[in-house]
């Protein structure tokens, strides 16, 4: 089954595209994000992580929107993008997420150098996890953000002292909003 068929086959569309970015390009993007500088988010009842709110990377984002369009069959444009970096003890809770209107597509591109055991991205439907993305360098995930879908980034164990999970999170909306009407 193709990724596009897989996307179309489920009532809660969500797919993974393995090896979507090579290690070398991922390292270059990480370096550029480091130079932009992360800011710390620490309202601990919601999340604990570093973030770059305006990651730039227009070429990469355009390419990602293209991949998302191929998989979903929709013409998508980038509405929001940010980079997250989670170290030991970091997390983003469901209550820090928000509900989206218009069924946008959320894309996650993992830029981490190495995988971190237990550091997962969970998508939930009415609170129940229906899609789990394990930390895997280079992986790309697409999830349709219907009105019942929420997400959280699981706690990164302090046992992994050098853990650094870098995720580029991109919200994609239909180029023509009437396409989903």
């Amino acid at each position: 089954m193709s990724t596009r068929d897989e996307w179309a086959a489920t009532p809660m569309p969500a797919v993974v595209v393995p090896a979507a970015i090579g290690a070398e390009l991922a390292a270059e993007v990480r370096a550029r994000l480091d130079s932009v500088q992360y800011t710390r988010y620490a309202l601990l009842d919601r999340g604990s992580y570093d973030e770059v709110r305006t990651p730039g990377e227009p070429e990469l984002l355009a390419a990602l929107a293209g991949i998302a369009g191929e998989v979903t069959g929709r013409t998508l444009v980038v509405a929001e993008a940010r980079a997250l970096r989670l170290g030991p003890g970091d997390y983003l809770l469901v209550r820090h997420d928000r509900v989206y209107e218009g069924r946008p597509v959320e894309l996650m591109l993992e830029l981490s150098q190495v995988s971190v055991p237990g550091a997962e991205l969970h998508y939930r439907h009415r609170g129940q996890v229906f899609f789990t993305i394990a930390s895997t360098p280079g992986i790309l995930a697409l999830v349709e953000r219907g009105p019942t879908v929420m997400c959280n980034h699981t706690y990164v164990s302090k046992r992994h002292r050098n853990a650094s999970v870098v995720r580029l999170m991109v919200l994609l909306r239909d180029a023509d909003p009437r396409a989903r009407a």
Binding site: L44, D45, Y91, G118, R159
Partner: peptide, 10 residues
């Protein structure tokens, strides 16, 4: 057990 936690909440 090892790796278990309860994150900040009220």
């Amino acid at each position: 057990r090892v790796g278990h936690y309860l994150l900040p909440h009220a």
